[in-house]
Computed example of a mutant assay.
Amino acid sequence: MDVLGLSLPLLLLFVSFGFMVGVLFGFFGMGGSFLITPTLLILGYPAPVAIGSGLAFYFGTSVIAVMKHYDVGQVDYRLGAILFVVLSIGIELGSRLVFALEALGIAELVTGVAYVVLLAGIGLLFLRRASNLDDVSDDEADEVSDEEIPAIGQKIQSYTVPPMVTLTSGGRASFWTISGAGGVVGLVSGLIGVGGGFMRMPAIYYLIGTPLTAAVGTSLFAGLFSGAFGTFTYGASGSVDLVVVSLLLVGSALGARIGSAATTIVEEDDVIVYFGIMMLLASAGIGLSELANWLGTGALDMLSVVLLVGSSFFVASIILYQVAQQVGTTGPNAQATLDGDD
C-alpha cells in the first residue's frame, strides 16, 4: 500500500530517520543533509533532487534547533552573519558546478567521492582530538576543558590580520580567516548538497577558534540562512521533493529540540568522540555505495544503506540514553533544562 506515493516501510523510514537526524542536528549543529543526501542517492533519487531535498530539510530543522540554542545563549550572531554572506556565495558557485557535472553525467560519482574523503577526514580529526585529551593527566584535562579552544584555533587567532572580529566567546579572529573558512564550506556545501554543518561546525571550532558549544549554536544560526538560500537555488529548478522533506521534518521537529538540550548535559569529550565515530561510519557507508555501483553488487548497496542510516541511529541512541540517564539521576532540574526553562 502506497501513502503519498511512497511504500509504508519507506514512509516510516523517512519519519524515524528524520527524528534521529534531528537529534544529531540539535546536538552537533549539523542538519543531517550529509546523511540525507547520500541516502536519497542510494535509494535512486537523481543527484539534483537528492541535493535540493537535503538542503530543504536542513533549512527546516535549522529553524527548530536555533530557537533552542538561542534559549541557552550559544549563538554568536556577528560571526554567524558574516558566515552567512560568504556561505551563500560559495553555495551559489557550488550549485552551478553540480548542474555542469550533471550535464557531463558524473555528478553522482564526484559527490560520492567527495563525501567519503570529507567525512573520513573530519572523523579522524575529531577522534585524534579526543585521543589527545585522553593522553593528558586529569589536571591537564581540566585545563584543556577550561580553555575549550583547540590548539590550532588558538594558533590561528594569534595571527592578527585586520580587520579583526570580536567573538562573543571573548576571543578575536581575522575577517579573512572567517571568510576563507566560510567560503570553502559554502562551495563544498553547494557541490555535494549539504547544509555544511558537518564541515562548518569543525571549521568554527578548529579554524575560527570558538568553544565547542558556541560553535554548535553559531553553526546552526549561519546554516539557517545558507540553508534557505540553497533551498531557493535548487527549488527554483524543481529539484526539491516536498513529500520526502515533509516526512523527514515531521520526525526531526522533536528530535532537534532534544538534541539541542542535550548539549548542556553530555560531556564535551563525549561529543567529540560521538561525532568522529559517526563521520567514519557514514564515510564507510558511502564508500561501499560507490563500490557497489562500480561492481554492480546489490548486497553491498544494501550494506551501505545500513551503515549510513545505522550510524545516525547508533549515535543518536547513545545521546538519547545519556539524556534519559541524566534526567533519571537529577529529576526535575534536568527536565526543566530539556523543556527550555532557566
Rank of each mutant, 00 (worst) to 15 (best):
M1E: 13
F84K: 03
V66E: 03
L247R: 03
L308A: 02
T233C: 10
A282W: 01
A214L: 15
S260K: 10
V327Q: 08
I152K: 11
G328H: 12
V72Y: 06
T160A: 14
A50G: 05
L125V: 11
V110M: 09
S283P: 05
S88T: 11
A334P: 03
F14T: 00
I318K: 15
L295D: 12
A236T: 13
L41P: 01
V271D: 01
F14V: 00
V3F: 13
A214K: 14
L10Q: 10
F175A: 09
I42V: 14
Y206V: 09
G340N: 04
G298P: 13
P9M: 06
V66P: 00
R128E: 06
Q325E: 14
D139Q: 15
L207W: 06
M302F: 14
G94C: 11
G196W: 05
G31Q: 06
G90R: 08
G105H: 04
I192S: 02
L133R: 11
G186E: 02
M302S: 13
V165Y: 12
V309S: 00
G227S: 12
P211N: 04
A324V: 13
V98C: 08
A107V: 06
L118C: 09
M30E: 04
G52A: 06
E92H: 14
L191S: 06
P38R: 00
F221S: 04
Q154M: 13
E92S: 15
G26T: 08
I277G: 02
T39G: 02
S283G: 08
G193Q: 04
K155I: 15
L247Q: 03
F175R: 04
G209T: 10
Y77V: 15
T297P: 03
I36P: 01
I277N: 01
V85S: 04
G331N: 08
A262S: 07
S260Q: 06
F225Q: 07
A222P: 03
S131G: 11
A282G: 08
I64P: 05
Y70W: 14
A47K: 11
R257F: 02
A151T: 14
D76R: 10
V243D: 03
G217V: 11
T166D: 14
T329W: 10
V184E: 09
P162C: 01
A253I: 11
Y159E: 10
G296W: 13
S317R: 12
V3L: 13
G195I: 02
A236V: 14
T337D: 09
V116Y: 01
P38T: 01
L281N: 03
G195S: 05
F225K: 12
G60R: 07
Q74D: 12
D139E: 15
D146I: 14
L280R: 01
A173R: 07
D270N: 09
Y234P: 12
G121C: 07
F313N: 00
F175T: 00
I156T: 11
Y70S: 14
A120E: 01
